[in-house]
């Protein structure tokens, strides 16, 4: 793939927590509409990488640009702008438990984009329908299954109309029978051209949906390539060991 203008452009990204160097110089350019699966062992820095991309963590070195615009962590207006373009979905859903499903979705567009009232509600209902939960507008998060909660979280992220979605192990907290309904929504987004960076342990899904797989090892990108090649012909022992340990 020849990335025209990368939508996410990461260069020399470093991050340490105290003496623990978690990211040791990450270079990654993601093209618009590309689906990138990030795999790697626990503690290899996958979550930290994603969290740097929308500024939940502040990098110690390196540059990061979204749609050609460099990230400015110290500029609240720039960050507000960036986070509208980069959405995130978490392993633990993180729905707001004090708000019903509809208000979970409408809160941020109302505050950030001034989209309130009937217009905001219509949009929220439309998004709920897209994730197959039309009838849950008034439900409280605690009344939903994990799979339904995660689909609401996806609808909530989509309500900001992001160009890029960061997904951090979004099916890892789900019972096995609920994984498929969430992955189906992600696959739909991928087919519609959403740029996706997803940390995942679902290798079959990565193989099916990802344009590119990135294997992280000890804070660096150890190996990367198209899913078909990476899984069938891993070049490094670390990746071979990682894949072998999976099955």
């Amino acid at each position: 793939m020849v990335p025209a203008e990368p939508i996410v452009d990461i260069r020399g990204l470093r991050k340490r927590f105290g003496s623990n160097e978690v990211l040791r110089g990450i270079d990654l350019a993601v093209a618009p509409g590309e689906v990138v699966a990030i795999i790697g062992r626990s503690g290899s820095g996958k979550s930290t990488l994603l969290r740097c991309i929308n500024g939940l963590e502040s990098p110690d070195a390196g540059t990061l640009a979204i749609e050609g615009r460099p990230m400015r962590l110290d500029d609240p207006r720039a960050m507000r702008d960036l986070r509208q373009r980069v959405g995130m979905i978490f392993q633990s859903f993180n729905l707001f438990p004090h708000l019903d499903v509809g208000h979970n979705i409408m809160l941020a567009p109302g505050l950030v984009k001034g989209r309130r009232g009937a217009q905001g509600e219509a949009r929220a209902r439309q998004l709920l329908a897209r994730v197959g939960l039309d009838d849950k507008f008034e439900a409280m998060p605690a009344q939903l299954s994990g799979g339904q909660q995660q689909r609401v979280a996806i609808a909530r992220a989509l309500a900001m109309e992001p160009q890029v979605l960061l997904c951090d192990e979004i099916t890892s907290a789900l019972d096995p029978e609920l994984v498929a309904e969430v992955l189906a929504v992600v696959e739909m987004l991928a087919s519609e051209g959403m740029t996706l960076l997803m940390v995942t342990h679902e290798m079959r899904f990565a193989r099916k949906v990802a344009d590119r797989v990135v294997f992280m090892h000890e804070g660096a990108i150890h190996e990367t390539g198209p899913a078909s090649e990476l899984f069938t012909r891993p070049q490094t022992t670390e990746l071979r060991q990682f894949l072998a340990a999976l099955d």
Binding site: R51, N54, G55, L56, P76, M79, R80, D81, R83, Q84, V86, G87, M88, F90, S92, N94, L95, F96, P97, H98, L107, A108, L111, V112, A153, R156, A157, M160
Partner: peptide, 27 residues
């Protein structure tokens, strides 16, 4: 209030004070 609530609110482009007032404080 779980850390993830701050993360979710921040990733939805809410300002620090919106995160506190609309998401954290009610809980």
């Amino acid at each position: 209030v779980p850390r993830g609530q701050w993360d979710a609110a921040a990733s939805l482009a809410l300002t620090r004070s919106e995160q506190l007032r609309r998401v954290i404080a009610p809980q």
